[in-house]
Design a protein around this nucleic acid. Structure first.
Lengths: 194, 194
DNA sequence: TCCGGATTAGCACTTGGTACTAATACCAGT
DNA sequence: ACTGGTATTAGTACCAAGTGCTAATCCGGA
C-alpha cells in the first residue's frame, strides 16, 4: 500500500472537483492503480460516473445562463414600474455577492441594482449615468432581500439631465441611497410635448 | 411527409439549443419520427450527439466559473499595488458589459472596478464603502481597456474614515472618476503606529 | 503462518450513441 | 400503371464508459 486508500480517495475527490472530465481510465493512470480500484473508490465516496458529472455541470451552466440573461436587462427583478416616474426592483443577496470574510454584500451589487433600475425607469432608447452620489448606510448580508425604489425627480430635471433617486431597503430599513444624474439621448419629443 | 424535412430540422435545432439534454429517442417521440430519422437529421445539420453536447456545455460552465472566481476578488486585474497608498487595475470591456443598443459600457462595471480597487488598496480585513461620488465622463465601449488608478488620500483620512480617489482612463483619456469614503474595521494598530 | 482488507481481473449487461446496409414508403412525372 | 428519387424506417455490428457481480491475488501485521 504505497499511498493509503484514504489519502488516494481524498485526492481523487479533489481531482474531480477541479476537473470533472476525467474518465476512470485516465484516473487509474494518474493514481497508478487499476480501473477497478478507481471504481470502488468512486463508489465509496459516492462520486457519480463521468456522464452524470457532466450532466450536473452542464445543468449548472444552463441555470447560470438564464440568470445572466436576466441580469443583462436589470440587476434584480423589476416588480413595479411606471415609466419616467418610479420603479421597484427586488434583489436577493446570495453568498455569491458577499465578501467571504465578513459576509457583507459588496457595494457594487447594490450599486448595480440601483443604477440599472435608474436606467430602466427612464423610458428611453439610451439613458446613461453622468454622476451619482451613494450612501451605504447599513451592511447587507447573504439572504437579505433588497428592495430598491427609484423615483424620478421631475423638479430638478431639465432637458439635458434627469435626476433619479433610489432608496434600497431590507426589511423596511434603509441600507442604501443613491442619487443618479442621468443623460438621455433620445429624440424624446413625443413625451416632451406634454 | 406531414411536416417537411426542412422544417423539422429547423425545429430540431431550436429544441436542442434550448435543451441540449434530449436524447435521440426523446426527440423521435417529440417529432413523431423514428430514431434513425433523428440521427440523419443531426448528421445533416452537424449536430453532435448528446454526450458531446453536454461536454461542450459543461466546458462553458467551468470557464465561466473560473472567471467569476477571479471577480470574487477584484473586478479587473490588479497590475500594481502599494498598500494603503495606491493601486492600479486593468479591466477589458467586452460585449458582455455594454448596453446592447448603444454598445456603451453599463455604469456598474466601471463602478465595480473602481470600488473593488478601493477595497483592495486598503490593507485591511474589512473595508466597506460608506459613501461615494461618481462621474461618468466619457462613454466606454466594448474592446476598451480601462485602467483604474486608486490613490489613498491621507490628508483627508482620519481614524474613522479613509478616502480613496479613483480615476479610470481609456487611452489616456479620463472616462470615470470616483471618490470613495471607506470604513475600516480592523484592529489596525500595527500600521496605525507610524 | 494464516487472516482480512485492498486490489485486480473478468464477464455480462446498460446507454446512447456511430456506421453501414437494406428494405419500404411516398410522391411526381411520363 | 410503371419508374425514379427522396425520405423514412429497420436492423446489424460496434464503441465508450460505465454498473454489478464474482473470483482471484496481493500484502502486511499479530
Amino acid at each position: 500500500m504505497r499511498v493509503p486508500k484514504r489519502e488516494r480517495q481524498r485526492q481523487l475527490e479533489m481531482s474531480l472537483e477541479q476537473n470533472p472530465f476525467l474518465t476512470d481510465e485516465e484516473l487509474s493512470k494518474q493514481f497508478k492503480v487499476s480501473v477497478q480500484t478507481i471504481r470502488l473508490d468512486r463508489l465509496e465516496c459516492g462520486i457519480p460516473e463521468l456522464r452524470e458529472r457532466l450532466k450536473t455541470v452542464a445543468a449548472r451552466t444552463m441555470d447560470a445562463e438564464v440568470k445572466s440573461l436576466q441580469s443583462d436587462e436589470v440587476i434584480g427583478e423589476i416588480v413595479d414600474i411606471e415609466l419616467d416616474k418610479r420603479a421597484i426592483s427586488i434583489f436577493d443577496v446570495t453568498d455569491d455577492h458577499v465578501f467571504r470574510r465578513s459576509g457583507i454584500a459588496r457595494g457594487h451589487h447594490l450599486f448595480a441594482q440601483a443604477n440599472s433600475l435608474a436606467v430602466a425607469v427612464l423610458d428611453d432608447d439610451l439613458a446613461l449615468t453622468v454622476t451619482s452620489t451613494l450612501n451605504f448606510l447599513k451592511p447587507v448580508k447573504s439572504g437579505d432581500r433588497v428592495i430598491a425604489r427609484a423615483t424620478v425627480d421631475k423638479e430638478r430635471s431639465n432637458e439635458k439631465r434627469t435626476y433619479v433617486d433610489v432608496v434600497s431597503t431590507v426589511e423596511n430599513e434603509t441600507v442604501f441611497t443613491g442619487e443618479f444624474q442621468m443623460y438621455q439621448t433620445t429624440n424624446h419629443s413625443r413625451s416632451e410635448v406634454k
